[in-house]
Amino acid sequence: MSVLDFQANDITGQAVDLNKYAGQVLLIVNTASQCGYTSQYQGLQQLHEEFQAQGFQVLGFPCNQFGFQEPGTASEIATFCEKNFGVSFPLFEKVNVNGSDAHPLFQYLKSHATGILGTESIKWNFTKFLITKEGQVLKRYPPTTTPQELRADVLAQLVDVAE
């Protein structure tokens, strides 16, 4: 099993088989529009633009589980991200990342890359998961890790992809 075996609805409600990203390095992020880390959208977009042509995608999954910091509708979220940060990477429907109704993708991500002290639960918005071209979870990053700090890890995976 891998990330590529999952399906999620995009921000417009259309089902997306994640196997469409086979052969690409992915960065999956739970996002929020009213969070102290919301400015990371800009860095995520920069990573996306810099490496997309080399086989890299950021996938954003809005989540309202932390401080109710993503209260908007899908349309409001998409408009906010595009207008304020020029986001062009794929955004998905709002999901839960913790609890019994957590999206199956995030259940998988958490079980394959635990957080500090081996905990599975996601602690806050903008937790990031780096995924290999084969759909395997490589690493989990806390919200405090900026997108710029991921650049070397992303590049290392892309170099692997190119070889």
Rank of each mutant, 00 (worst) to 15 (best):
N19R: 11
Q65E: 13
E120I: 08
N9Y: 07
F66G: 05
V137N: 05
S75G: 04
G99M: 08
P104N: 01
Y41C: 07
I11H: 09
L4E: 05
S75Q: 11
F68W: 02
T38D: 11
T38H: 12
Q157T: 01
S100A: 13
A162N: 13
E50Q: 15
G135A: 13
F51P: 01
T114C: 07
C35Q: 02
L27E: 02
A74F: 01
K110T: 05
A15Q: 09
G43Y: 10
E50L: 14
H48R: 02
G13V: 07
P147F: 12
Y37S: 08
H112E: 09
H103P: 03
L155R: 09
M1G: 09
Y141A: 05
I11S: 05
Q69C: 05
C81E: 00
N30E: 04
F68Y: 09
S2H: 06
F129S: 06
V3Y: 12
Q57G: 00
A156V: 01
V29Q: 00
H48M: 04
Q52T: 08
Q57R: 15
A32K: 06
L155Y: 01
Q46W: 04
H103E: 04
E82I: 05
Q40W: 05
G118S: 06
Y21R: 12
F61Y: 13
L27M: 11
H103Q: 04
Y141S: 03
F66N: 09
E82M: 12
A53E: 12
E49N: 13
G60R: 08
Q157W: 06
V159F: 00
Y21T: 04
T79S: 08
A53W: 05
E93A: 12
E93N: 10
K139S: 09
T144G: 08
E49G: 08
V3E: 05
D153R: 14
Y108R: 11
F68I: 03
L91F: 07
F56P: 02
E163R: 15
A102V: 06
E120P: 00
Q45V: 01
V3D: 04
K133I: 00
P104F: 07
L105G: 01
K94S: 07
T146F: 15
V95Q: 02
P143H: 14
I77F: 03
A113M: 11
F56C: 13
G43R: 08
E120G: 06
L27W: 08
K83M: 04
N30C: 09
A74C: 01
T114F: 07
Q136F: 10
I11W: 08
A162S: 15
F129H: 09
P104E: 04
Q34T: 03
I28P: 03
C81S: 04
F85T: 01
R140T: 14
I77A: 06
Y37T: 02
N125M: 14
V87A: 05
G118V: 07
Q52K: 13
